[in-house]
């Protein structure tokens, strides 16, 4: 009699535990999409049971729990992706835009081509109503580090002032300087490299 009761209890506990397991069972679906430039990247989805790669536009895998292998990738129809994920994709912000402005050697004077790029930067700032604009100054490796750190700061300040002169609020502009430490083109020390004499403007 006593044993029967214990068995009943055990059965009940078993049912409750499996019930909890079922309700607690989560599922993750991952869908790869083409990049804004049309290229298709690659994702690897892994857990304790193994891993799969997805590398085609619209390819998806589903994972039901940590101990179960991600499902064999399959390509979802475009309409299904739009119906299920159209909303979250519509709220994806536009990626920040980068501009590079170049300077004459050893100076804080912009090259004529770079001067003519300023209107495009302003247009982008206004279009995006951006309140986060980074202005990052760089130099080539000609001259010593200390000199270049100062020069890169002066270059960033010059560009910051140009933007402020066109009505962009100071509060929205963050100027930093990297000296010769972060070249676009890697060179030995004391090399004149026009492509490294630059200020990068990032409009977010």
């Amino acid at each position: 009699m006593e044993r029967l009761r214990i068995l009943r209890y055990l059965a009940l506990i078993f049912l409750v535990v499996t019930g909890l397991n079922l309700t607690g069972c989560a599922k993750t679906t991952v869908v790869l999409l083409p990049d804004p430039d049309g290229k298709v990247g690659k994702l690897n989805i892994s857990n304790e049971a193994g891993s799969v790669d997805i590398d085609k536009a619209g390819e998806a895998t589903t994972v039901r729990g940590k101990q179960s292998l991600p499902s064999k990738p399959e390509i979802l129809p475009e309409e299904q992706i739009a119906a299920k994920y159209g909303e979250v994709l519509a709220n994806l912000p536009e990626q920040p835009v980068h501009f590079i402005l170049y300077f004459k050697s050893g100076s804080t004077t912009l090259t004529p081509e770079s001067v003519s790029k300023i209107p495009e930067i302003l247009k982008t700032i206004n279009q995006r109503q951006s309140q986060s604009i980074s202005v990052v100054g760089h130099t080539d490796t000609a001259g010593n580090r200390q000199y270049n750190l100062r020069l890169s700061k002066q270059r960033a300040d010059v560009v910051g002032k140009i933007l402020m002169g066109k009505g962009i609020k100071k509060l929205y502009i963050k100027t930093t300087s990297h000296g010769e430490e972060n070249p676009l083109i890697k060179t030995a020390d004391n090399v004149n490299e026009p492509r490294n004499r630059r200020v990068e403007v990032i409009v977010r």
Binding site: A26, D35, L43
Partner: peptide, 19 residues
């Protein structure tokens, strides 16, 4: 990370749904 798996990203645009 999601509750079920870890994503390694080699580029770049994707959707994740947990339910």
């Amino acid at each position: 990370e999601t509750p079920d798996a870890t994503l390694a990203v080699r580029g770049t645009k994707f959707v994740v749904e947990i339910d």
